[in-house]
Nucleic acid binder design. Structure first.
Lengths: 372, 372
DNA sequence: TTGTATGCGTTATCAG
DNA sequence: CTGATAACGCATACAA
């Protein structure tokens, strides 16, 4: 309860000046005797540096902000999980902003950099508008953008390449002998939808398959939408033998419908998703999925920001993280009762299998009640 | 790049004293003319308050920390997702600490409260040790613990009740006519393992079933472990007709093994999990699971902390959040081809179905490369 | 080596 | 109503 001790308290106790206290605390050359006295006093009083005063003086908060639409989104979560340890190792705390996908909120975050409560910002905006760019140009602290920014924007930038990602999957399906590969894409007016659609056409051309509009179906990026879309597609084209889905949720919806229709996966129809979320490994059959490298994008973004925080000025840098195909049972299945359960995660360090642990020691014995 | 303007800059520009500037900025009674001049100057200069200086003076940072083992864990994530908006609405920023389940790190976080970079802390420790309690007693800011603390610890505390949770599930299974209900529990030396084991015995007794040691199997809280354990159990007791699993991952492992063994779920064997993670809805058949109310625990914790931040002193409070059974196909199945896909989430506001959206506009057209 | 004094950007007190 | 001025807790240039 009592107000914490300051260097003044210590100085008094040790019988020295606050300057000496500060010097000892910062490891500057000081007489042994003084060091001893100061350390003793600090120990006894349980002194802890005041970070706020420190920041005011040093103009560094040792805090970095990460702003994204929604922590619940597996893609952002993957970024967060990589960003956190990188920053921590470098001595930075992490301030989390959830913008709920509201552009105005994102701009607020950019503006708030003027308050100087963080040294830098990593931001993954839904869509970069002109307003973003304006505010960005006037930002009072270094910013790294994860996502798509216009060519030439003077900002550190880390991006995915889902176009190539789609191509990886199509190549895979084609190599397995599939020839009627449909695409269940997201809305075409979204950035990812457009890119994935383009990737689909490119990939078909590359493997020498014709582009057939009949094989394209649009769905919002959710599971029920995936069900609806795949049902329609199946009704129109019952001969389809592979489904490229624009994300894992749509792919789960596809599995639902195929199961109900009595089509075996992957024997009759192979299914591939995108994003490689936890759900891909949990479903049955487990889902082949294209990882867009969210985790790595997070890590790279953090490293870029640290570089700029330490190093100072340099040219803005742009990094594109390559996609990676994670093959599981929904395309590669070895018979529908195979034991390929733990179909791994390739090479990526800590896979998703590991962290879904448990409710961790939070327990209650009965009904202690909840009132005051 | 130029250093941001301060109230001094504005004062000079407006031809008034810094005191007047501060007053205007804080809405204190001031002559209209002065207000006008100050606002004009502030606007032109793009002035933004310096949060650090403000904090130093006011002794409030408007930041709150949340410390848990791992953001990747769905339980913590659910808490985070509730905590964030509550704090944001109250004008607080959220500082995130990942302790990697290392007790020493948790204690460091408690100690670091002395640095005064946050106004309060919400912490969900793996296990509360004596060292925790000591540090807690000396904490220099209000703390809310999510989890189990010893009786009488003078700290705001929010807890789950997995014992009752297990009972809900067993009651459900018994009501469905199952009579040989096995338990695949976590290690008994963990807090959750012990509580769930106790809940299992209690529940059996309550419904009048005998406790049979043969029906209990221990597994670590992971899917491969779940597979191993259930395989053993099945070999020993092929007559089992229901499985109560201590978490969702173990339950997924159970589904794997049952499928391979040709047992139908739920017709031959019903399966229930715990934690009600995203995975429960994604699996097939979808998994009946006991929610321990992680989301609500998070929300309550945030509210308790805010109360204390605003209100000041009061008696420490303890809240127990009741568990909730979420019934899905793995116990209630309406035939194995039923359309009960979207089996809902009960009542809990925003269900998990909604947020697993997509890779959000992060795209790249090709190979811009990753070099400098 | 040590102490004194000043400033970081605000807010708040107290005369004018 | 306004303007000097003193904190807030720390770091540091400068003087001793």
């Amino acid at each position: 309860m009592a107000d914490g001790p300051t260097i003044n308290t210590i100085a008094a106790r040790a019988g020295v000046s606050i300057a000496s206290v500060s010097r000892v605390l910062n490891g500057l050359p000081t007489r042994q005797e003084t060091v001893r006295k100061v350390m003793a006093a600090a120990d006894e009083l349980g002194y802890v540096r005041n970070a706020v005063a420190r920041s005011l003086k040093s103009r560094r908060t040792h805090q970095v902000a990460f702003a994204m639409a929604d922590v619940g989104n597996p893609a952002y979560l993957a970024m967060l999980r990589e960003i956190q340890p990188v920053l921590k190792a470098a001595g930075y705390r992490l301030v989390l902003h959830s913008t709920d996908a509201v552009a105005a909120d994102e701009i607020d975050v950019l503006r708030s950099l003027g308050e100087r409560y963080v040294d830098g910002l990593i931001m993954s905006p839904l869509r970069v508008t002109d307003a973003h760019l304006e505010t960005l140009a006037a930002a009072r602290a270094p910013v790294v953008i994860i996502g798509q920014v216009p060519e030439g924007t003077p900002v550190d930038n880390v991006r995915a390449d889902s176009r190539t990602g789609v191509r990886l999957a199509i190549d895979h399906l084609h190599a397995l002998g599939r020839r009627r590969v449909a695409m269940v894409n997201g809305p075409l007016d979204t950035v990812p939808g457009a890119a994935r659609g383009a990737g689909y056409r490119e990939a078909l051309e590359a493997v020498g398959l014709p582009y057939d509009e009949d094989l394209v179906q649009i769905a919002d990026f959710y599971r029920p939408e995936g069900r609806r879309a795949v049902a329609e597609l199946l009704a129109r084209r019952p001969d389809v033998d592979a489904l490229m889905c624009a994300n894992d949720l749509i792919a789960l919806g596809a599995l639902d419908v195929l199961r109900d229709a009595g089509r075996r996966v992957p024997e009759d129809v192979a299914v591939a998703g995108m994003d490689d979320t936890d759900l891909a490994a949990a479903s049955w059959p487990s889902l082949t999925s294209v990882s867009l490298g969210s985790a790595e994008r997070g890590r790279v973004a953090a490293e870029l920001l640290l570089e700029r925080l330490n190093g100072g000025e340099r040219e803005p840098r742009r990094v594109t993280v390559p996609p990676r195909l994670v093959v599981r049972a929904s395309t590669a299945g070895e018979g529908h009762c195979g034991e390929g359960h733990g179909t791994g995660h390739g090479t990526e360090g800590h896979g998703t299998e590991g962290h879904g642990t448990e409710g961790h020691g939070t327990e209650g014995h009965g009904t202690e009640g909840s009132g005051a």
